[in-house]
């Protein structure tokens, strides 16, 4: 009970607040490097996933939301709408990490797949409103066109379009976030843990 309450604690300490801009910047840098290396993935949610892992679902959600507000203000004003999917990524990361899904490599892979499912479920209706169901990614959209041409319903095709792009992307992102988490000293990451209290020595 108290563990669950801690999980959803809303009052964030200052270290967590300062982590948010860093998380957003990490997302941004991930995206830049992925583009520079011409990787077929976005890799633009590493920071959000990391924030969820160290700070829980509330911090993850906030990082995701702010991330897309910033994208809206800097890259493409329309992308702000996808903030809802980013919130989903942050929340899912926080909850999964809380239940021990970041201890072994295979767990991290499952972690990535679940995060991808969550973000796809949220993105589908948004894609529908925006682009009539597409994602704007060549491979995903090719699948979308193929399925549509074979009488599969639009929502399902759109979902497949999304998950095809999202699953590898989120798995790789989760692995990178996990690697960073393992490298950082615990004395640093504990600062983002909002459930710490001072005790008394005598």
């Amino acid at each position: 009970m108290s563990k669950a309450r801690n999980l959803w604690r809303v009052k964030l300490n200052t270290a967590s607040i300062v982590l948010i801009p860093a998380a957003v910047a990490i997302n941004y840098i991930g995206k830049l490097f992925a583009e520079a290396l011409k990787l077929p993935l976005w890799l633009d949610s590493i920071g959000t996933i990391f924030a969820g892992i160290v700070g829980g679902p509330v911090l993850g959600a906030l990082s995701g939301l702010i991330n897309n507000i910033i994208y809206g203000l800097t890259l493409s004003p329309a992308s702000a709408v996808y903030g809802i999917a980013s919130i989903g990524i942050g929340v899912a990361s926080g909850v999964l990490a809380h239940y021990g899904m970041v201890s072994k490599l295979w767990k991290v892979i499952v972690f990535g797949i679940i995060v991808a499912l969550v973000s796809s479920i949220i993105s589908v209706p948004l894609n529908y409103v925006y682009y009539g169901g597409q994602t704007g990614n060549i491979w995903g959209d090719a699948a979308f066109a193929f399925l549509n041409a074979h009488h599969v319903n639009v929502i399902l095709s759109s979902f497949v379009d999304n998950i095809l792009v999202d699953a590898p992307d989120k798995v790789v992102s989760a692995i990178v976030a996990f690697a960073v988490y393992r490298v950082l000293p615990k004395r640093l990451t504990i600062l983002f843990d909002n459930s710490q209290e001072t005790t008394t020595l005598d």
Partner: peptide
């Protein structure tokens, strides 16, 4: 110390 770092404090 202790408000930012938490931990155990005496004196």
């Amino acid at each position: 110390v202790p408000h930012f770092f938490k931990g155990a404090y005496g004196g």
